[in-house]
Design a protein around this nucleic acid. Structure first.
Lengths: 203, 203
DNA sequence: TCTATACGATACGGTCTCGTAACAATTTGA
DNA sequence: TCAAATTGTTACGAGACCGTATCGTATAGA
């Protein structure tokens, strides 16, 4: 007669485990965005979270495992606007993304991930997934506009995304200039021009 | 009659010093682009270069000093094309940059610098200098076209640079897609739209 | 209440790193 | 050839980190 707790194969003490895990993941994510991936260590996470190091190693087999797990908390996915007009949607999404880039914690962490992805396969895969999550809103808007015939089906989706994401990314992490609304307007208008033109006076 | 080497107030044994320094800087730069800034250590540079650790500390006061010095070797500055036409210049420069991004070693090192610049003031300053060197070719071409009246003086230079550099940067380090010539053509044409339009049929 | 489970505290061995030190060997310029 | 400068070798102390181990304690469920 198993006195089991009905459904769920959880061994026992599930709440405690969940609390510990949350504390660890929270501290780990905070550490990473502050000190970068290289400044991330189990010892420091243990100190900051108040969770004993042994407990951490009871839930994650290694530093790399916790690192990947905590990185997955980084969620730069935006809500998908729906203004009815294609240009309005793109513009609003770009504005949201621009603001998030300049205020969100993930924006401080992302360079570390990109750097590590240059040499680490697992982090490269993680970054690829995050990139998909990051651009899926754009992809949705663009595909929707194509079905609504607001946008020519021949327009290449990834190119259009690059035309909008690119300048934002560039300003945030490369030129380090502030991104104001007029800049966002400029790049959106421009990208739409490319998408909408038949042949804009070949002078 | 001093058989001295005329000019130069170098104390002595200058060649030896130069050789040691070169070996160290070379090994340091190689290490950084392979392992990233966090994988860079004096001990490893000493082993790889064959130069004793003590000698390294005789020429650089600390790890950070050598790191900065070696980083300064990163030279992503391109030659300035001069085809006579503005669009041709921009296109050629963008193609050069795109190729360099996908083959050069500096392209593997840059994410590390950007990541560190997010938290370190000195590296942020270094990155700013490198960014200037990286974009100065664009700036030159654009200003030249303005004086030649090939380009309206009202066009914002930094915005135009962002429109071209942005998508390249985005594809190299964020989406990690390969950059082919047609993509470069697309973004150049798109950026030129901004520069050339009076009012392109407001449909 | 009682027992299995999870947790905390502490410590350990091993590795790596920084920066310093002392001493011997080598190269350089005269 | 000879003295000064530079470099190589080896070692050290301090600190950080990883991953493991031990032991005592607190919690959850029956």
């Amino acid at each position: 007669m198993a006195t089991s707790k009905a459904a769920g194969a959880q061994p026992l003490g599930n709440d405690r485990v969940a609390r510990s895990k949350d504390a660890v993941l929270g501290a780990a994510y905070a550490m990473m965005s502050e000190a970068g991936l290289s400044g991330f260590s189990i010892d420091a996470v243990s100190r900051k979270s108040g969770v004993a190091k042994m407990t951490i190693y009871r839930h994650w087999p290694s530093r790399a495992a916790l690192l990947l797990d905590a990185c997955s908390r980084m969620s730069p996915r935006a809500e998908i606007p729906d203004t009815g007009k294609f240009v309005g949607d793109i513009r609003q999404l770009a504005l949201l993304l621009a603001k998030s880039m300049q205020t969100g914690r993930w924006a401080q962490l992302l360079p570390s991930i990109i750097d590590a992805a240059e040499r680490d396969r697992e982090l490269a895969a993680l970054h690829a997934r995050q990139h998909v999550a990051m651009t899926t809103a754009f992809r949705t808007i663009i595909e929707r506009a194509k079905t609504k015939k607001q946008l020519a089906a021949a327009v290449d989706t990834t190119t259009l995304i690059a035309l909008i994401m690119g300048p934002l990314v560039y300003r945030r992490w490369f030129s380090r200039e502030t991104i104001d609304d007029s800049f966002v307007d400029a790049i959106v208008k421009n990208a739409i021009l490319l998408a909408a033109r038949k042949r804009p006076r070949p002078a």
